[in-house]
Write a protein that binds this DNA or RNA. Structure first.
Length: 520
RNA sequence: GGCCCCAUCGUCUAAUGGUCAGGACGCUGCCCUUUCAAGGCGGAAAUACGAGUUCGAUUCUCGUUGGGGCCGCCA
């Protein structure tokens, strides 16, 4: 064992991303990874990814994979690893042995029940719940005997009773009295080292210079420093980030309905939004700029501006940022991102062809041009908070036949006769427009100037375009809320637009069932 | 309970020993408008409390209160 373990001088910065694969990747994992990432990149440093999976009961490969996927998706890359602590038992064992040989750690044979009872008792008396030291003075022989008898034991670190002071990059100097910590357990046995020990060994072994982690680790820090001192290894720099809280101001957890990163991704949150949002949970540049790309974060971030108090996770603000980034996206990229939602909604199907593949309308079977999707997305863009919403608000583009109450076609005090007149007028205008001139601007330009005249002809207020346009809207989408009628007509194309107008006219003239069924 | 950390609108936060305490989300009013959004222009909304230092404190100090974290054979 390297007896001479030296101080790590002014080496290049190296940080760790140490997720524990005991659950799916969540906002906390993202924040931890993001701040480490930014800090490392700013300092030309390296990043080590280390799965802290020493809790074999709770750790699952599924979770580790989820975290790996999430980090990759977000673009939070690392330089070394992933390392898995469960594959490093031999390393821990060596250090464990060293501590035991040097009498800095010892076997403890106390039962959990016994310890728990003592803890309760101490806390009830207002004392710090520390280990009694019962097994601390067992001689080597006594311990050996008990071990030989097969007595169950754990390995406890002999914690020095002293004041530990350390500097925190976020909070400044923090002091602890380790007399209040007591001897703590560092391993279940020689093959199963525990967190406060593995962290110290790994951070040293991997050459970590900066430990950037959540505030909930502040009170672990003195323990880890004690272990470092016993092992004779250098102390890294520490930065403890404020915790992220739920609406009730307690540490964010599943109980708050905190959603996993994969779930956010599935719902159509953009990684830019997630990153911008998370970065501002506990940090801001001190200016009024709130929209930040990764590049800008790397430019402006500083640990000194990290907030000390915890921040409440506000999903409404996340939605705002997400819709902002959706509005920023270029239509082609957005359409590509939206396609999966159309497919899973059952509107679009992907088909194989000799040359590759193509898309078709899953409802009608007709072949689909990507331009069609792109246009839908272009027009829906301003109203999306998340990508998953695209399908539900675009359903009417894929249906063969629309079904709706005929009352819906009427605008305000219009009669059915007047509504029919409006449809006829639009039909008349539209049918004269060449398919080649069928653009949103063109349709609008042609129709709009005629609304005044139309209103006068049926004796309605001149400026209310709804008399002419509302029936068209309903004819095209069959519902109250939608994008503009000219936009819809543009997406639908001349033929379908005219057919839906004709359908609407049919509906008005009596038969309540959908007429198109008969002329398909 | 012990130890540690923290404290500006509801939320995320900016600023300063002297400001009308700024921005963003949300809420809300108006405009735009064929619906719903989006967009534009406004509005309400905060320095936890008490002392001290000071000409002056939200800012500095102390205390109180409040909130949080940790106190595991979890991480």
């Amino acid at each position: 064992m390297e007896k001479e373990i030296l101080k790590s001088g002014n080496k290049t910065v190296k940080v760790r991303m140490p997720p524990s694969p005991t659950g799916f990747m969540h906002i906390g994992t993202l924040r931890m990874a993001l701040f480490n990432y930014i800090f490392a990149k700013q300092n030309n440093g390296k990043i080590v990814l280390r799965m802290e999976d020493t809790d074999k009961e709770r750790s699952k490969k599924e979770y580790a994979d989820d975290i790996l996927d999430g980090l990759k998706w977000l673009g939070l890359d690392w330089d070394e690893g992933p390392f898995y602590q469960t594959q490093r038992t031999e390393i821990y064992k060596r250090y464990l042995q060293k501590l035991i040989e040097e009498n800095r750690a010892y076997h403890c044979f106390c039962s959990s029940e016994e310890l728990e009872a003592r803890r309760q008792y101490q806390m009830s008396r207002g004392e710090a719940p520390v280990y009694s030291g019962k097994c601390a003075n067992l001689s080597v022989r006594e311990a050996r005997d008990l071990l030989d008898q097969g007595k169950k034991s754990v390995i406890r670190f002999r914690a020095e009773n002293k004041k530990i002071k350390f500097n925190d990059l976020v909070r400044g100097e923090i002091e602890f009295d380790t007399g209040l910590t007591g001897d703590f357990v560092i391993a279940k046995d020689m093959d199963n080292a525990l967190y406060n020990f593995t962290v110290v060994v790994d951070d040293f072994d991997m050459g970590i210079t900066h430990v950037i982690r959540g505030e909930d680790h502040i009170s672990n820090t003195p323990k880890q420093i004690l272990v470092q001192e016993a092992l004779g290894i250098a102390r890294p720099e520490y930065a403890h980030l404020p915790i992220i809280m739920g609406a009730d101001r307690s540490k964010l957890s599943k109980r708050h309905g905190a959603v996993g990163i994969t779930e956010y991704r599935r719902q159509g949150y953009l990684k830019e939004a997630l990153i911008n949002f998370t970065a501002f949970l506990g940090w801001n540049p001190g200016t009024e700029k709130e929209i930040y790309s990764m590049e800008e974060l790397l430019r402006d971030f500083s640990m000194g501006k990290v907030q000390k108090g915890g921040a409440v996770f506000n999903p409404v603000r996340l939605d705002y940022l997400n819709s902002f980034y959706i509005k920023q996206s270029d239509p082609k990229t957005l359409a590509e991102m939206c396609l999966p939602y159309f497919i899973s909604a059952g509107y679009v199907a992907k088909e194989k062809s000799e040359t590759g593949f193509f898309y078709k309308n899953a409802k009608t079977g007709e072949r689909l041009d990507f331009e069609f999707i792109k246009k839908i997305v272009l027009y829906q863009q301003p109203r999306l908070k998340k990508l998953s919403e695209i399908a539900e608000v675009s359903n009417y583009f894929f249906e063969r036949v629309l079904s709706y109450e005929k009352e819906l076609l009427k605008w305000k005090d219009s009669s059915f006769a007047e509504t029919k007149l409006a449809l006829d007028k639009i039909e008349n205008i539209f049918s004269k427009i060449e398919a080649g001139d069928w653009t949103r601007q063109n349709l609008e330009k042609t129709v709009l100037p005629q609304s005044l005249e139309f209103n006068l002809s049926i004796g309605k207020p001149e400026k209310d375009r709804g008399y002419l346009l509302w029936p068209l809207r309903v004819a095209l989408c069959g519902q109250k809320m939608s994008i503009g009628p000219f936009e819809m007509a543009d997406v639908l194309g001349k033929e379908k637009t005219l057919r839906r107008i004709a359908d609407a006219a049919e509906i008005i003239s009596g038969s309540t069932c959908a007429p198109t069924l008969f002329n398909q």
